[in-house]
């Protein structure tokens, strides 16, 4: 385990701190979205779909050697960019750390509106699903 969830969040906040204008921030997020590795086709199905009203998000989670890995994609690029940030922050960490994490970076980089109810873009559901998956893995760990 190298860098903590907290440290990654601080890194992202710092990256954003040099972007003054909203369009620079969005250009950055769009770039992250474009760079996000496409989700293998086998996971782009009903089972992995996190429903949103306007855009769709597919999420796959794996539990390997005590760490949780997330893979996701969306049909809308801004959501995709935000997903890539969430994956950067949460993927590859212990289930326990993911469950306990407080994702304050979203607010700090000025993207909290994307988690609001009215956006109905599936991002809030996606974040919730990520935590639920981590929680399930945690329960499994305890059961073993």
């Amino acid at each position: 385990m190298n860098i903590s969830i907290d440290d990654i969040q601080k890194e992202i906040i710092e990256d954003f701190s040099i972007l003054d204008e909203w369009d620079d921030k969005y250009a950055y997020i769009i770039e992250c979205g474009k760079k996000l590795k496409p989700l293998p086709q086998e996971y782009k199905n009903e089972e992995h779909l996190v429903r949103g009203c306007q855009s769709q998000v597919w999420l796959h989670a794996e539990h390997k050697d005590g760490l949780v890995y997330f893979y996701a994609e969306s049909d809308a690029i801004i959501v995709k960019g935000l997903i890539s940030l969430l994956i950067k922050v949460l993927s590859g960490h212990k289930a326990e750390d993911i469950v306990k994490s407080d994702l304050y970076f979203i607010d700090k980089i000025g993207m909290q509106s994307h988690l609001s109810m009215t956006r109905s873009n599936g991002l809030a559901s996606m974040l919730k699903t990520m935590k639920v998956k981590a929680l399930l893995f945690l329960e499994q760990e305890k059961a073993n």
């Binding site: 369009d23 969005y26 009203c53 306007q54 855009s55 049909d75 809308a76 690029i77 801004i78 959501v79």
Partner: peptide
């Protein structure tokens, strides 16, 4: 090549209210 939701978000930043979906 551009999702309607993405367009709506950027137009809102420009002070323009449209509907997408």
């Amino acid at each position: 090549d551009i999702h309607h939701q993405d367009l709506g978000i950027i137009l809102d930043k420009e002070g323009i209210a449209i509907r997408t979906g």
